[in-house]
């Protein structure tokens, strides 16, 4: 990893509470261009809350979040549009629009942010769906899809505008192991072919082992470890136990 690459995501002393419950208590992290950083941690540790701060879906109580040179924590919502064209967010529940078909879901960002005509949009959608292994599914409704197919459609929609940063929230949650492996492989391929910077939130050690250039371990509102997966596996305490419990590292 060349350390001369620019920092794309910079989170500094991020704090967030909901009522009396402090979820993030001074979290800091830097992600370099083209790097894949996996945020590990147990359920309810605030991994998704952290990720939602990166594209401004949540505002910090304290601290700053900078993405692609924009100060997300201070940018007004209506000025966030330009940044969100460059940063994709793949939701844990996929968040496909129920009232739209698969094709319309994938076309949504294209229609929202480009002047492409109907035929060009349809062509782009077909290419994107083929890329995620779902060619010819344009007319299906999201309710007709399996969990793995929904993840693929969400990924296709997320790739529509060629994002520079892709945020994945629990990409294999709720999937069987084989489908989980297929989605992980697809994310790896997308990262390789696009060169996008990726921030992946998961508690799945297999995903982290396959994708991570670095991992950050979130516990009690703080990153208690940042480094390689192998380094995390060698750690004592919660970090080492968590990583070794995944069965990938002895």
């Amino acid at each position: 990893m060349s350390e001369t690459r620019p920092v794309v995501v910079e989170v500094h002393e991020l704090r967030k509470s909901f009522g009396a419950h402090t979820v993030l208590d001074g979290v800091s992290l830097e992600v370099l261009r083209g790097e894949t950083v996996v945020v590990l941690g147990g359920s309810g540790e605030g991994k998704s809350v952290f990720l939602k701060h990166v594209n401004g879906l949540l505002r910090p109580d304290h601290g700053s979040v900078s993405v692609l040179g924009c100060n997300v924590s201070e940018l007004p919502e209506d000025e966030m549009v330009g940044l969100r064209r460059r940063v994709s967010y793949i939701f844990q529940q996929c968040a496909l629009f129920d009232s739209l078909t698969v094709g319309e879901n994938v076309a949504f960002p294209l229609r929202e942010h480009t002047d492409l005509g109907d035929s060009d949009v349809a062509r782009h959608v077909a290419v994107l769906l083929e890329r995620v292994g779902l060619a010819g599914t344009e007319t299906l409704a999201p309710s007709e899809l399996s969990g793995g197919m929904r993840k693929r459609v969400a990924l296709a929609r997320g790739l529509a505008l060629d994002p520079e940063v892709i945020l994945y929230d629990e990409p294999t949650a709720g999937l069987d192991p084989l489908t989980g492996l297929a989605i992980t492989a697809l994310i790896g391929e997308v990262t390789r072919t696009t060169g996008a910077t990726s921030l992946v939130v998961t508690h799945d050690i297999a995903v982290a082992a396959k994708l991570a250039d670095r991992v950050a371990f979130l516990s009690s509102g703080r990153f208690t470890f940042t480094g390689t997966m192998a380094g995390a596996a060698r750690q004592g305490g919660d970090v080492g136990r968590f990583v070794r419990a995944g069965g990938v590292y002895a």
């Binding site: 879906l57 969100r84 967010y89 844990q92 949504f108 929609r157």
Partner: peptide, 18 residues
């Protein structure tokens, strides 16, 4: 409400739509 609790409204925001 269904769209909100299933993160579809947040997805819309994250896709740069209002």
């Amino acid at each position: 409400g269904s769209m909100t609790v299933s993160e579809q409204v947040e997805a819309m925001r994250s896709l740069g739509a209002d």
